[in-house]
């Protein structure tokens, strides 16, 4: 049996939790989440000498993804918000917002462009320090923002495969949480490897 046939079989499992987990794994290796996960791994590796920090950052990133996916799923399953509207909205405008946002955050964090008015702002300096040094809140935010970056294939996996399972099960919490855990699994595994062997 080929890898894709196995993923299809498991993703169509009669047990909703199993199906959610394998759809999540499929998402983790699909183009957009894969790119965001690689970025997250780079973020996790920032303080490679502190194993506790690395592990926690990896988990918080996944928790951030869990937050966004669960929020979306519960809005659809429990509050009856149209999955079509959310999906099309996020696919149309999500990346348009995310791209410039990441660029702005990057410019602020790296001090690439020295902006005088930024220096004057004490609040922004504090924010910059938080983003650069704290890591914990940053990784959670990174996960929750990246989870909303839907491209066509990841949208199919979430809105076309996972949401119907969640609706059928009437579960807007555990099923998307398991899905989210699987999407962040590569980052968790990587942070675990770094924790065991940091050098």
């Amino acid at each position: 049996m080929s890898f894709m046939a196995f993923m299809e079989m498991m993703g169509s499992s009669n047990i909703a939790i199993v199906a959610a987990f394998f759809i999540g794994l499929m998402t983790a290796i699909s183009p957009c989440p894969l790119a965001t996960n690689i970025t997250a791994i780079a973020y996790v590796s920032k303080r490679i000498n502190n194993s506790k920090h690395t592990l926690l950052v990896g988990f918080l990133y996944t928790l951030g993804r869990m937050f966004s996916y669960t929020l979306l799923a519960s809005l659809i399953v429990w509050f009856g918000i149209s999955s079509q509207s959310i999906s099309l909205l996020l696919q149309k405008y999500g990346n348009h917002i995310l791209g410039p946002l990441l660029l702005i955050i990057g410019v602020i964090m790296l001090d690439i462009i020295k902006l005088n008015f930024l220096k004057a702002s004490n609040r922004l300096t504090k924010l910059k320090q938080k983003l650069a040094n704290k890591g914990y809140m940053g990784s959670f935010l990174l996960g929750s923002i990246f989870a909303l970056a839907f491209c066509p294939f990841s949208a199919v996996l979430f809105f076309g495969m996972l949401i119907p399972i969640a609706i059928k099960s009437g579960d807007g919490l555990i099923i998307p949480a398991v899905f989210a855990f699987a999407t962040g699994l590569p980052v968790i595994i990587f942070s675990l490897i770094l924790t065991v062997n940091p050098k």
């Binding site: 939790i17 199906a19 009437g170 555990i174 398991v178």
Partner: peptide, 10 residues
């Protein structure tokens, strides 16, 4: 608990 919360995806 997790398995119990899920219903078959039929």
């Amino acid at each position: 608990f997790l398995v119990g919360c899920s219903t078959p995806n039929i």
